[in-house]
Amino acid sequence: MPTMISMAARAILLCALTGISNAAYVLEEDFENTAAFFDHFEFFTEPDPTHGFVEYIDQAAAEAAGLVKVNDNSIYMGVDSTTVVTEGGRQSVRLTSKNIYNHGLVIIDLTHMPGNVCGLWPAFWMVGPDWAAGGEVDIIEGVSLLDYNAVALHTTTGCTINDEGFTGEVQTTDCYISAPGQDNNVGCGIKIPNPQSYGDGFNDAGGGVYATEWTATGFKTWFFGHDVVPADIAAGNPDPSSWPTPDAAFAGDCNFERHFWDMQIVFDTTFCGDWAGNEDVWADSGNCATLAPTCQEYVGNNPAEFEKAYWEIVSLKVYQDSNTTHPAMKGSYPFSSRSRVIRHALP
């Protein structure tokens, strides 16, 4: 018996030293697909930190305008698609979770995300306090006619990732927002080349599931079409160790405990701004520059183009490793002063 105990102890130590995950995930927070969904969030109404041509409105105004609602057992979050706008910006919503997280598994099931429209910039992401000190992970993000999902991290200096352990394509490896040799605020990014992972391709395929695992050693993300979602996700007992190679994995020379902490979940749909509205990006965004000389002019004058600029959420759940000591916490940190410059550079 003593020998067996010693062997078990050595096995546990080996797992700890090699970073092997033996997480047993339990449900921590279920954002129900009812009106209670919005009770988990604050509606952000300050000027867009990314300088978008947008007016973020509060919950009462959004409900009155039909921009947020429960629709056939799913959550709808859209934008104004009827008004010609000459100043201020097109109305939209930006939601920030009331809870704060440290580690965990975030799984979102969507039947629709904002599609490919010139000037559009939607994102589903997580962010810590005192940006970029607390870190940022972009789970779903893109602009205009981009036909793939761009997953990225943004940090302070001293965090780089390896080009291995995932199926996506590395675009940049230094997560520092001011990294030498990279455009300002690009961070470290991985392209998900699957055309069904973002925008119109995602919607035409009937949506899918995104899972993001955050541990002490980094982040991993998976995209699953609805026809290939692992059975353990549907059963409510997710086991990332049994899933295929992740689409994106961020690990390397980085103290993730120092760079990512107290993060909140964010949904937003903005227009133009520092990425989609950048002159070079607008000029290179397919045929967008032929439709209007500037992003803002196009967005303001073509409201009907944004009818499909909505999120339709079937479920959003946060799981916690039962062995961790980092539960979600109530409260929120202000980060309205956070300003992102050119987010990414289109290829």
Rank of each mutant, 00 (worst) to 15 (best):
G207D: 03
K98P: 14
S97W: 05
V137S: 01
A35G: 08
A36H: 13
L27E: 14
D39V: 07
E55H: 06
N278V: 05
R338F: 15
L13H: 10
D130M: 11
S337R: 05
A133I: 12
E55L: 05
D174F: 09
I313M: 04
N194C: 08
M113W: 05
C15T: 04
G273P: 08
F124D: 00
T34V: 02
N33I: 02
F44W: 12
I100M: 12
H226D: 00
K317W: 15
V341T: 13
E55I: 10
G225D: 09
G134F: 06
S6F: 14
F31P: 05
Y25W: 14
F43Y: 13
N71G: 00
D58F: 11
G207M: 01
D253K: 03
I100T: 12
P49Y: 15
F250A: 10
W125I: 01
Y198L: 12
I12V: 15
W243C: 01
F44R: 15
N185Q: 14
A289E: 08
K317M: 13
T111F: 09
N194F: 13
D163K: 07
Y310V: 01
D262H: 10
S241I: 02
G331K: 11
N99T: 08
P246A: 03
S337T: 03
G225H: 01
G119D: 07
V314S: 14
H326T: 13
F250H: 05
F202I: 00
G119W: 03
G119E: 05
P238I: 04
I233M: 02
I12H: 06
S242A: 04
A8C: 11
F219M: 11
W261H: 15
L153T: 04
E55R: 11
S242E: 04
